[in-house]
């Protein structure tokens, strides 16, 4: 079969207006179905004719998936809220600025107007080989083209690789983990609420997926508890150009300081592994210390322990180290 790209093949489009209908469709078509949110990842796959679902279920008409609501001490964000909604929501800006900051660094304003929070956290990796339609592990084959003696793997993983060395590209995912968000999933097994951290999986669990979503599942909302409200946040994303570019490495952290000491902290890196990498060891070490340059530097060293660089991505090691340091000390020296 000759390969042709850039032309979307036919599929059946469903535009349910209730979650119930959407779930029923997901159940009916199972693996042959595709939840369609903003389409910025989806359309890429469709137009290249690499992923060919029979049934595309457009979630944009499902009212239950929209809107940002205050709940208890935190907020609940419908999965179909756009990144612009998230970025500009006053409550999120004031209480959970980490998330609005992260959302504001995604791609371009146009993409943020269209892309959704649910889609952003559920998006597939951007490994060029996989995106090129090569039959690698992640595509169901038995080879990783990005980790051979001659591969180009500048954007690939330092940690948690297992056969597949791709990274999670999302900017909002690590921020949500740092905020201890809960992901609400509806599916065949009813409603499930999982910690943000547990939403993401590594290839050692399932090499063809980035998240725990099963074919019948829909991510309905993301709840941010009040736990980290108003904490000291830090988000930084390093990229080759200042717009329209995925992170080479990003850091998201939430820190509570009391009496000059770090009382509690959550710190998460992305684009260094197949899922956002929460730095548990670093968090433990930092508790009770003061947020200084030296403490940050030591944390940076600890953060990078156990890295396994590929041919072209060793630069991510010092980058990661420095970003951890910056997250602790803040930008000003």
């Amino acid at each position: 079969m000759a390969v042709i790209r850039d032309t979307i093949p036919a599929f059946e489009l469903f535009q349910p207006t209730s979650l119930e209908d959407a779930l029923a469709l997901k159940r009916r078509y199972g693996k042959a179905s595709w939840a369609y949110a903003g389409g910025l990842d989806s359309l890429d796959w469709f137009k290249d004719r690499i992923k060919r679902p029979d049934a595309v279920i457009d979630l944009s008409g499902v009212a239950e998936l929209r809107g940002i609501r205050d709940v208890d001490d935190g907020v609940e964000i419908g999965a179909m809220s756009t990144l612009t909604d998230v970025e500009t929501h006053a409550g999120i800006q004031s209480d959970f600025g980490l998330l609005s900051d992260a959302a504001s660094k995604v791609a371009t304003p146009q993409i943020r107007n269209q892309g959704t929070l649910g889609g952003n956290v559920s998006q597939d990796t951007r490994c060029s080989y996989y995106r090129g339609g090569w039959p690698c592990y992640r595509a169901g084959g038995n080879i990783c083209y990005a980790d051979t003696p001659t591969s180009i793997n500048r954007e690939h993983a330092l940690f948690e690789a297992d056969r597949c060395v791709a990274v999670n590209p999302s900017d909002t995912a690590p921020a949500l983990i740092a905020l201890d968000a809960k992901f609400v999933i509806q599916g065949t097994g009813g409603e499930k609420v999982v910690d943000a951290e547990d939403y993401f999986i590594t290839p050692s669990t399932d090499i063809t997926r980035m998240t725990i979503l099963e074919p019948g599942d829909i991510l309905t909302s993301i709840r941010i508890p009040g736990t980290w409200k108003g904490a000291q946040f830090y988000f930084e994303k390093v990229r080759d150009r200042q717009a329209w570019d995925f992170a080479l490495v990003s850091v998201s952290s939430a820190m509570k300081i009391s009496g000059g000491k770090i009382e509690d902290i959550r710190i998460v890196m992305n684009a260094v592994g197949p899922r956002p990498l929460r730095l548990h060891d670093v968090e433990r070490q930092l508790k009770g210390q003061s947020a200084t340059e030296d403490v940050g530097a030591a944390a940076g060293e600890l953060a990078t322990l156990g890295n396994r660089p590929l041919q072209h991505n060793a630069y991510k090691i010092p980058l990661m180290r420095n970003l951890v340091k910056r997250a602790i000390r803040g930008l000003e020296v």
Partner: peptide
């Protein structure tokens, strides 16, 4: 040899 183990340098080719 196709996977990453401490035993060999990975070389799918």
């Amino acid at each position: 040899v196709r996977i990453d183990t401490p035993l060999f340098a990975r070389n799918p080719y």
